[in-house]
């Protein structure tokens, strides 16, 4: 129950941060960081993969409702949540899996976390921007938009990890 309330609180904070602050950044009219995926990134490793998938879908949908893009964020976040268990499996040495761990800087180390974040953000952003464009006609234009936003998101995610989620080491 306690953990449920804790994650509900993170959920609300993350969604509000995204729609009220990050969606207003719109740098140069192209670049927009999508930091809400930190919720999926930071779910405990032992979380059932079905739950992760469902949470990813609902998280994306809640962002969609705010930004008038029904289905777009939901599909991208679902895709990312689907790949999460496989990505974690690849990034872990088989013997060092300790299911109690959270995938955070404090428990995994900075370089592991950066690798993890970069892969997850790229997966999410590539899917998001191409599903939003819904065509490959401006392939490289979409790719530039995607990568520039991804760089911005990754930086913000790592900074926020360093600033706010430190105490969860205990």
């Amino acid at each position: 129950m306690k953990i449920f309330i804790k994650y509900l609180f993170i959920w609300i904070t993350v969604v509000l941060c995204q729609v009220l602050i990050c969606n207003n950044i719109q740098l140069f009219g192209y670049i927009n960081p999508y930091i809400y995926i930190i919720f999926i990134l930071l779910l405990p490793l032992k979380t059932s993969k079905y739950l992760v998938l469902l949470l990813g879908f609902l998280l994306g949908l809640s962002i969609d409702i705010f930004s008038n893009t029904p289905g777009i964020h939901a599909s991208a976040t679902t895709f990312m949540a689907f790949l999460r268990p496989y990505i974690i499996n690849i990034l872990f040495n088989r013997e060092s899996i300790d299911k109690k761990h959270l995938p955070s800087i404090s428990s995994m180390g900075l370089s592991w976390f950066i690798k993890y974040t970069v892969i997850m953000v790229l997966v999410h952003h590539l899917f998001l921007f191409y599903i939003e464009a819904f065509s490959f006609t401006n392939f490289f234009f979409t790719l530039t938009r995607c990568l520039s936003s991804a760089v911005f998101s990754i930086i913000l995610l790592i900074i926020s990890q360093l600033l706010f989620f430190k105490e969860r080491q205990k």
Partner: peptide, 13 residues
């Protein structure tokens, strides 16, 4: 399950 959710998203889009 993943495909089901994605199809739902596509319908929305």
């Amino acid at each position: 399950f993943f495909i089901l959710l994605e199809v739902f998203c596509l319908i929305l889009i």
